[in-house]
Design a binder for these strands. Sequence first.
DNA 1: TATTGTTATACTCTATAACTATA
DNA 2: TATAGTTATAGAGTATAACAATA
Lengths: 172, 172
Amino acid sequence: MSERKSTRPAARPAKAGTAAALRRKGATVRRGKPAVDLGILEDRLGYFIRRAQIWVFQDFIRGLASVDLSPAQFSVVAVIGANPGLSQSALSETLGIERARLARMLHELGDRGLTQRLPSPKDARSHELHLTAEGQKTLARARTLSEEHEQRLTKKFGGERYKAIKTILREF
Amino acid sequence: MSERKSTRPAARPAKAGTAAALRRKGATVRRGKPAVDLGILEDRLGYFIRRAQIWVFQDFIRGLASVDLSPAQFSVVAVIGANPGLSQSALSETLGIERARLARMLHELGDRGLTQRLPSPKDARSHELHLTAEGQKTLARARTLSEEHEQRLTKKFGGERYKAIKTILREF
DNA sequence: TATTGTTATACTCTATAACTATA
DNA sequence: TATAGTTATAGAGTATAACAATA
């Protein structure tokens, strides 16, 4: 949690007894300094899921900076790569991205030369989504970078816990 | 995941073999219908954390609609309630909310009569944050509603898994 | 009538920078 | 010089509504 924001504690000398330090140890002990009590948040899973999700996304964004793909863009490219010819509506429903937002994302990815929209032979309203050759190269590179990210995550959680949480959340 | 968006499948008759159904079973099998392959996302913990976080927040928002507190607002009220006299900067650092954004949130909560800012006797730059009487009543009500939310979460995960994931994420 | 993809709008959240008043 | 709080702005992300073309 210490790297949550670029403007935050990470940049400063670590202070013992900060809320962040206490959280890291899962402790509720108070020391000399004015540690902040999370109150009822301490018992809300959603709070901890949110903190973890922010940490994970920030690591992901840093890790994939060289291919300039956000988590959402990565998910779009990955799913198109795995399902060439997919329609926008199917993609939208799979990832839970609004059709309106997906349209704009695909314009951007198209402008960047990563994705392509071909007319569907079956339905004139629909488009078939494909990766371009460059899109496939980018996906391959992103795959490698995201593996590295995943290994950082594994290290951060510890292998056992990483597996446990992954299993649980996948079935969720 | 079936309730991810109000405009999505939850409203429709469940279809066997949808991507969501496959995800739930952790399977990659394809059936008759055009199930969508998640590709490499299937191996990215961040993807599943994000999906879970969205589900949890949406349930939380619905559950606390009657007190009109967003997850972020709830966290602010809860932490002020547990630490009367806290400064904005300490609160900002604890919750990872930008000072700028926190200032606006506190203005809104103040306008709603839930929070109060008193001048600090120690530092003229600083304010002491407190809940008003109404703020405390709202927090009490929110506490009850968020317990109910937590129980829905427990049910959704299953008690064992709920405990496991909470323990893991708390120590994260 | 319903669906696919589109544009537009509005609101939230995040990220910065710049400013004031204090320390 | 640094910190506490503020204002302003710009960019994502989310939620809607409305529309044209097509089914």
